[in-house]
Write a protein that binds this DNA or RNA. Structure first.
Length: 847
RNA sequence: GCCCCCGUGGCGGAAUCGGUAGACGCAGCGGAUUCAAAAUCCGCCGCCGCAAGGCUUGCCGGUUCGAGUCCGGCCGGGGGUACCA
């Protein structure tokens, strides 16, 4: 009987389906919810998907064997820009494109034999899903968690449309090539910053999250304590008597040499009304995209308003308008202290402003600020110069706190906690997203749609032949009656950020067909997600938004309190990086091509024969040029080979590299296991002395493979399975002992290669499905070793070794070590300077 | 720019708590089997060196009896940077 993957895999997939093995049921068993981040339906699955979903499948199948009722669902993150881009590029409709892709990808995923409950599948672009999302939105609006505010967007002045950051390349619109400018629109926003403190403090409870993710979120939320104070204007202007600033370094007030306000600051706007030069400056610095990176790396520029403010420490400070001050953070105004801030120093040098030290290095002989600002860590001792609060030699931390206390006593300002986290702007001027269910009435203003009218459906008759939002220019869609007064009114034509769709899908999976967002009994039973698996690229936004949404859904009664942190454990798998294939048009602009549209052997675009560039050049490598089609691999070697290979070799948290040799080698190994099982099934040898050793090896394999799965180290489990297979293959044990070992091997392999495991399980006379058999347990008695070999180091270098009984005490080990030839030679008759014995580990002789 | 992560043989990687660096796999080399090959099985395999021995975890420095692991500083690569998902 040969290893025929096609028939074996089809047979077992049919048997699992027949038995409804993966249907998640609420019952008396403890539950386990394992979830992989759902895919964007881009067109075809790639080997990264295979890896991601195989990891989740290993956990799901392992937990099933451990007696849990497992929920392992799958869906589609189906709204988003690529569908509109496809419609623009080649006609067609985003809806058709998306559902066609979903069909293709589902068809590619099913042959992998994943333990998914497909009865719960949904796409976020299903009206049944986004209608419930609209209901959530309305409840959050009611709870004060959504509001409208001005927000800055990338504006393409030629296409007259809003661009995503991705569509701004080197400050220019990707299609028009026009220089992008920042423009303010009124947008809907979630009040995520109102929960900043809780989102920050609760990170400490997420013990089963990677430290790096918690750290990134902590830095992103960015709690800071500082001083908010007002500098009185020397002469009031346009109704402003002062400039309110926020600073995290009030201890540098002595070194302040200017005030800088954002170009969007109310004072700057007021002044610009009758200062054409300032208005021109404000327009000028509005050029470019909205990303933090663009703002941070832009040249620092300023405009002197000619106004001055009174410094509470005496004298006056000039008021500048500066492009590096953000209206969205703090008060939109700062004081500049060039001596202790590099950006302020660069600004001061450029515009010839004074540089005054507020403190100098501790016990420094002389001190002068040159090209670099003096910015020691806040934990370092410094010597303050003439500090108003009277501090002298202390740390920055102390200096800040003392100065805040002083400022409060003097009535100059107040200590304040500030977060970097901004509210989440959710409005998008795009078609392929969840419509925001509100109506603009000329009389009643902004009015929520009635829940009984949900879902507010997207119209199908739209075109993408001109830039801009098809909803906005649709002839009839927006026309409606005001839900309050019945007058003619207009629907909101913005749709929601697609991050909203992915912020609650995990909750919807617990009751995917319900006629309300969630069902209490189902979320009570299934929440929280016990193990969430996905890419580290989602470490901040998606995970933070989901944490916020879970809280908001708790406030609005859609989730229990226990689900305020929805993901009990998080694993971030290695990134799947794609090389990008690029050609340039006649204007030198880059055009990207899908990997499958590129012929790598000739380095050209298949359709046009144009030569491609591969970017980024540094990432270019033989392996990354390999574009692997999972379907071809399954056809050639079977799903089990693909599954085993993506789990072997690379640790799950690191990037994975596919090599054709590796896949072939895996197939060879699985064929060998199958042949070994066939041989063992037929064998007829009497019990003998080797049986006990094989039993010990089996116990070790159980312990080590289980430990690997528990610790998310599938590559190590795979290595141990190789070892155990080699041991079993070479064992002279009797037929029954080898059958027992083979049956255990099938169980241990089952989470990784479930089809082959079922086949072998049956061959070995196992009852039912291997998946339904309880996970094997290692007999502790068989794991105990009675002696241990200790390496002997001499001066930290390994020179010899000694084998001693496992429980031998230090004195006994010392005696054995002193009798070792290498030690005797090294000591040359003398006594060791030091003898370090770490029982069970190592011996180090210092001579 | 800022935040986070990673760097070990020809290659993917192992070393779980500061304690034998290189498990396991790939590639390579040698052998058995074969008329021959494929397949299979057995063995070797970090670098320098005939050997004794020396060197070796991106680079430089530090702590320690002992550092791939801890600390400081560099270099290189990756991710995120709020409208890619």
């Amino acid at each position: 009987m040969s290893y025929d993957t096609t028939s074996i895999e089809a047979k077992w997939q049919a048997a699992w389906a027949e038995a409804d093995l993966f249907l998640a049921t609420r019952d008396a068993r403890p539950k386990y919810y394992v979830l992989e981040m759902f895919p964007y339906p881009s067109g075809r699955i790639h080997i990264g998907h295979v890896r991601n979903y195989t990891m989740g499948d290993v956990i799901a199948r392992y937990k099933m064997s451990c007696g849990f009722s497992v929920l392992h669902p799958m869906g589609w993150d189906a709204f988003g820009m690529p569908a509109e881009n496809a419609a623009m590029a080649s006609g067609g409709h985003p809806k058709e494109w998306t559902y066609r892709n979903i069909d293709t990808m589902r068809g590619q995923m099913k042959p992998l034999g994943l333990s998914i409950d497909w009865s719960r599948e949904f796409a976020t672009c299903d009206p049944e899903y986004y209608g419930q999302q609209q209901a959530l939105f309305l409840d959050m609006l009611d709870a004060g968690l959504v509001y409208r505010k001005p927000a800055v967007v990338n504006w393409d002045p030629v296409d007259m449309t809003v661009l995503a950051n991705e569509q701004v390349i080197d400050g220019k619109g990707w299609r028009s090539g026009a220089e992008v400018e920042r423009r303010e629109l009124t947008q809907w926003a979630f009040a995520i910053s109102s929960m900043a403190e809780d989102l920050l403090d609760s990170l400490g409870d997420l013990e089963n999250w990677p430290d790096k993710v918690r750290l990134m979120q902590e830095n992103w939320i960015g709690r800071s304590r500082g001083l908010q104070m007002t500098f009185p204007l020397s002469a009031p202007v346009h109704g402003h008597d002062g400039v309110e600033i926020y600073t995290t370094r009030p201890d540098t007030l002595r070194g302040a040499s200017f005030i800088a306000i954002a170009p969007e600051h109310p004072l700057a706007r007021a002044l610009a009304q009758d200062d054409a030069e300032l208005a021109a400056f404000a327009t000028e610095v509005r050029r470019g995209g909205t990303t933090e990176e663009a703002l941070e790396t832009a040249e620092k520029r300023g405009y002197d308003t000619g106004l001055t403010v009174q410094n509470p420490l005496g004298g006056t400070l000039p008021v500048w308008v500066a492009n590096f001050v953000l209206m969205e953070y703090g008060t939109g105004a700062i004081f500049g202290c060039p001596a202790h801030d590099q950006r302020d120093l660069d600004f001061a040098r450029k515009y010839d402003l004074p540089v005054v030290a507020a403190f100098k290095p501790y016990e420094a002989e002389s001190f002068e600020v040159g090209a670099a600002a003096y910015v020691p860590p806040k934990t370092e001792l410094v010597e303050y110069v003439d500090n108003p609060a009277g501090v002298h030699r202390t740390t920055g931390h102390e200096g800040v706190e003392t100065t805040i206390d002083w400022a409060e006593t003097q009535g100059i300002g107040e200590g304040r906690v500030q977060y970097r986290l901004r509210d989440w702007g959710l409005s998008r001027q795009r078609y392929w997203g969840c419509p925001i269910p509100v109506v603009h009435c000329p009389d009643c203003g902004v009015v929520p749609e009635r829940k009984e009218n949900l879902p507010v459906r997207l119209p199908d008759d739209v075109t993408f032949d001109v830039p801009g939002n098809p909803l906005d220019r649709h002839p009839t869609w927006a026309a409606t009656a005001c839900p309050e007064c019945g007058a003619d009114a207009r629907r909101e034509t913005d749709t929601m950020d697609t991050f909203v769709d992915s912020s609650w899908y995990f909750a919807r999976f617990t009751a995917p067909r319900a006629d309300k967002p969630t069902v209490a009994e189902d979320v009570d039973y299934w929440m929280n997600v016990d193990q969430y698996i996905g890419g580290v690229e989602h470490a901040i936004l998606h995970l933070l938004y989901s944490r916020f949404f879970a809280r908001a859904m708790n406030v609005t009664g859609h989730l229990p309190a226990k689900a305020r942190e929805p993901f009990d454990a998080l694993f971030t798998q290695g990134m799947v990086t794609h090389p990008a294939y690029v050609t340039r048009d006649d204007k030198g602009r880059t055009i990207y091509h899908l990997p499958e549209d590129v012929d790598l052997s000739s380095g050209t675009v298949r359709a046009t024969g144009e030569a491609i560039e591969i970017v980024p050049a540094i990432k270019m490598s033989k392996s990354k040029l390999n574009v692997v089609d999972p379907q071809a691999i399954i056809a050639q070697f079977g799903a089990d080979t693909a599954r085993w290979f993506v789990l072997s070799d690379s640790p799950p948290e690191r990037d994975f590299e596919w090599t054709p040799e590796g896949a072939a080698a895996v197939h060879k190994h699985l064929t060998r296991v199958h042949r070994l099982a066939t041989d063992i099934a037929r064998a007829d040898r009497a019990p003998n002395d080797a049986d006990a050793e094989l039993a010990r090896a089996t116990a070790r394999a159980i312990a080590e493979v289980t430990q690997g799965i528990d610790g998310f180290a599938f590559n190590k489990s795979v290595a141990k399975l190789y070892e155990f297979t080699n041991t079993l293959s070479r064992s002279d044990a009797g037929a029954q002992a080898r059958r027992d070992a083979m049956r255990t091997l099938a169980q241990l392999m089952a989470p990784m290669v479930p089809h082959l495991a079922e086949e072998i399980w049956t061959m070995m006379g196992g009852e039912g499905f291997v998946l339904s058999a309880p996970w094997p347990e290692a007999d502790p008695a068989l794991l105990v070793e009675d002696s241990v070999t200790l390496p002997i180091q001499i001066n930290g270098k390994r020179r010899s070794e000694v084998t001693v009984p496992k429980d031998m005490d230090k004195a006994g080990i010392e005696a054995r070590v002193m009798a070792d030839d290498a030690v005797i030679r090294a000591l040359d008759g003398g006594a060791p300077k030091k003898l370090i014995v770490v029982p069970g580990r190592i011996v180090n002789v210092v001579v």
